[in-house]
Design a protein around this nucleic acid. Structure first.
Lengths: 347, 347
DNA sequence: AATCACATGGAAAGCGCTTTCCGTAGAGGC
DNA sequence: GCCTCTACGGAAAGCGCTTTCCATGTGATT
């Protein structure tokens, strides 16, 4: 581990106190907020000295002395993914409103990294940890993460998860299953009968939940998804693209394709276009990524209020801990039908 | 300012030492890395005790004792903007490789916030600050930011800027002007003669540089941009959309539109589509945002290696400080011609 | 056997703050 | 004029670490 920077040399409170001709204690009380008050003229003198010396309190030292910090950790899979950057934006908004600093870490979808960062944040004595997207079904990793978060909570920190409902902590649950079910219902309502699913990784809960929900919704309309209409692949644009090509190779008769997220849907559209099949095969996604709202054809999807989800997680973590069981806030997406699924004109 | 969390209660090194039956000093040397070594069997005993108690060193206390941290601050305008999230991803990659934690703050394009966060990071005794996107021409704000960064550097921290070359610190300069000039040259080469520019905010340097470069490039082809072909507006999708409509209202004879970033270009395309003019008016953007590479028509743009830019800034900050003048790394974009500017077929 | 150099463990002094505890002075009550 | 109370400044004791400075034991050297 490489460390560096900030060698001794910053102005300390002691220098400020000396400059102002008061004691260290008084300077602390005057500047850095305290229950005790200081006579106005003295406070003024200290403030002037601080300004003159360009003093900024050492947050680390304050943290050590006070026993708490104003740092919250946000762990996401990939900050470059608009899904996560929107969540981060929402969380940062709330953090800023509460005077908290946010430390963001990206796991690159490796569950180990989540544990590692959780431990690092425990070391930093972060006030809270929010983890977005821990969703593998790796039993062992999940258990170790649970243990780490437990230790974090026992040492006084607060924890919230986004989209993961498998650990006993406060959670903003994204109703992936229900959303996908609703989507399937609407799509069958449009007359589609032959579906394919670009299903993402097998071990990613978000992906498997959406697949499961979609299957349920189809079942509600009396349709069964043939196994060869499900193609697994990566959870990103290229994954959608490649899975779409694979699906086309297997079956040319698919009417409507559900990609388990918008980014994959975009890849699928590109693949269809390359085969001259766009506008012939309907495509639906999930998330309603803002940046993607202008693509053509406009993408049918399930809208998730991502920034609100991030904000909600942070608010959850800021509230007093519940004394009972852990809270959960369920966020349900809303189906948005657009041009990419125009409906079936049979005849 | 609201603070919370991590009350006393975490396991301390002293408890570990007691458990292992050694002194505090020995425990510290055994666990937390030091120049001094400890006999293997004792180290083993301490490690076992630490594991048994689930000990994690208090990073704040270490920071105050050591006088340095492994925290770097990254200040961006808006993490939700793919431009910044890509930069952040690149920076985080390098940070992780060097065992550094990254704290990200979003300014929402308010220059004051930059100063505020820089001060906060000085308080945290961050090892380094990277600021992406400080680019207003607000003299006063710039000066105060300069003063704050100066104080930060004097107290031992390191600073790098991205895209801003107006302050005497290490900078990754994005050659906006040159890129836009190249783009104009290529577009005139395609036969376009009548141009419009969706120019973004008047006080945003990135935007004005791109406008200036584009104008220069056109001048190189003997074309002058009429003032009413320049429409200012917001630097986002809606800004591009509205500016495009405004431009169309002013002049219907525009052949090719340069939006000063990709997101605006997407808005412009949407506006053109709503008027049935897509494919009739050419559109070019800037940045080559990854998520937008599949839009139709594929967008001509200037590719910026955003993740590399973020990574480069962090690497700059990790290297030993230069003893001479401040470093600058110039990153020049590369024009990518795509379908959105098919060229002119004059009848 | 005496000397020296290390290697290694522990005591204690910081690091830059906050906060408790104490002392003093002035205000108010009688 | 004496007593109590309150307000407020300062000394000093932490907070959880690292690191300097000692003290001790060991093996090598003569």
């Amino acid at each position: 581990m490489r460390t560096m920077g900030a060698k001794r040399g910053a102005v300390t409170l002691e220098e400020v106190a000396r400059e102002a001709g008061v004691s260290l204690a008084t300077a602390s009380r005057a500047i850095n907020g305290s229950a005790r008050t200081v006579r106005p003229e003295i406070r003024e003198r200290v403030e002037r000295a601080a300004r003159a010396l360009n003093y900024t309190a050492n947050a680390q030292a304050q943290a050590v002395a006070r026993g708490r910090t104003n740092l919250v950790g946000l762990v996401v899979q990939d900050i470059e993914d608009p899904y996560f950057s929107s969540i981060a934006a929402g969380a940062m908004r709330v953090a800023e409103a509460n005077g908290l600093m946010v430390s963001i870490a990206g796991t690159g979808r490796r569950p180990d990294k989540e544990i590692e960062y959780a431990a690092a944040l425990r070391g930093l004595r972060a006030a809270a940890i929010v983890i977005a997207g821990s969703r593998t079904d790796d039993r062992d990793a999940l258990e170790r993460l649970g243990a780490e978060l437990d230790a974090f909570e026992r040492s006084g920190g607060r924890v919230a998860l986004i989209g993961q409902r498998r650990l006993p902590v406060d959670t903003v649950v994204v109703a992936n299953r229900a959303g996908a079910r609703d989507l399937a219902t609407r799509l069958t309502g449009l007359g589609y009968r032959s579906f394919g699913v670009l299903a993402g990784p097998r071990n990613l809960l978000t992906a498997t939940d959406r697949l499961a929900g979609f299957t349920e919704g189809m079942a509600g309309a009396g349709i069964t998804l043939p196994p060869d209409m499900i193609v697994h692949g990566e959870f990103n644009r290229d994954g959608g693209h490649d899975a779409m090509l694979e699906l086309l190779a297997r079956r040319r008769d698919v009417e409507c394709v559900f990609a388990v997220n918008d980014v994959m849907a975009v890849g699928a559209l590109a693949a269809l276009r390359s085969r001259g099949l766009d506008r012939r095969v309907a495509v639906a996604g999930f998330d309603d990524i803002a940046t993607l709202r202008d693509i053509v054809p406009a993408l049918t999807t399930v809208r998730l209020p991502l920034a609100r989800i991030g904000a909600a997680a942070l608010e959850m973590v800021l509230r007093e801990p519940a004394e009972g069981p852990h809270r959960r806030l369920v966020v349900r997406g809303e189906v948005v039908l657009r041009e990419s699924t125009p409906g079936v004109r049979r005849g």
